[in-house]
Structures are given as structure tokens and as C-alpha cells.
Amino acid sequence: MIDRSPSSLVKAVSRQLQDVMDPELTFLSVTDMGILRDVKFENGHIVCVITPTYSGCPATEVISEDVLKAAREIDPDAEVEVVLSPAWTTDWISLEAREKMTANGIAPPEGSSHDKAFLTGDGHTIPCPICKSKETKLISPFGSTPCKASFTCNACLEPFEHFKCF
């Protein structure tokens, strides 16, 4: 018999959602990314609160569906709520997730999003995630997804992506 008390449901769903991955960074979970903001019990069912990274990021819709599907395996009445405030920031990405990014060839966000210079990469060094050289160059402040910028490493000559500080 499954324990249906609100607190155990919240715990079970939270555990379940640790396996829901970001569809564009498949080695990171939505929890790692700070996209999953809360799991709560309201009006007799589970509500999973998520927040989009960028306003137009198409991954948000997929994430919302994946979270709903995973949560409903525990509570068939679970719902997903999308909130915009407070606005998502890369400051919420866990340290562990940043290490996973580097291991997967993506330079993680550097510093705090409150420092506006970081936003545009002005005067800041983004080390190469592959050879660790600091001799890197911004190719474009935009990249393959809204959250990334394109760099190249002058030492190992590999192109790489940098997760924008946002």
C-alpha cells in the first residue's frame, strides 16, 4: 500500500523528478538546472512548480511534459505550474551541475549574474573546458541554444560552448 500522505507524496515525487533531464543538456536534471522550483501538495494533489530559463526556450514545453509524466506516475492527479517570478538565473545551477558541464565540454557560467559585465563576457576569461587554457576567444555571444555563447580555444584550437551567465 502506497503511503498517500501529502508529505510522503511530496518526497516521492521530488525523488522521482531527480531523474527528469533537461532535453538539451541530457546529462543535467531539471533539479540541477534550478528549473524545478518546488514540489508541493495543494487542493488534494501534487503541484510541481517550474520556471523557464529563457522566455522563448522551446525546452520549457518538453520539460513541463516530462515533469508532468514523471509526477503522475506517483500521483495521477499531479499538475505542473509554470512561474516566471523570480526570474531564473544561472546562479541557481548547482556546483555539481557546473562540474558536469565542464566534463561534457561546455564551459559553465562564470561568476554571478548580478555582475552585468559577465552577461556580455566583457573583460572576463572563460577557460577552455577541454584543455583548461585561458587563451580563449568569443566567436559569437549566441550559440546553439538560447543559453549558450560560442567560443574557441586558441591553445587547443577546439571550438566550445559557454553557458552564458544570466
Binding site: 522563448g56 549566441f142 550559440g143 538560447p146
Partner: peptide, 20 residues
């Protein structure tokens, strides 16, 4: 190519704002 990506990335942000 970089600018193609930049302009369409900006467009994507704007579409997200539009939806909201």
C-alpha cells in the same frame, strides 16, 4: 553563420516575451 544564429536567437527570446 554566427550572425544567423544571433538574429534568430534574439527572435526566439522575443517570441517568448510575446507569448507571455
Amino acid at each position: 553563420l554566427e550572425e544567423d544564429i544571433a538574429l534568430t536567437n534574439i527572435a526566439l527570446d522575443l517570441i517568448g516575451q510575446t507569448q507571455s
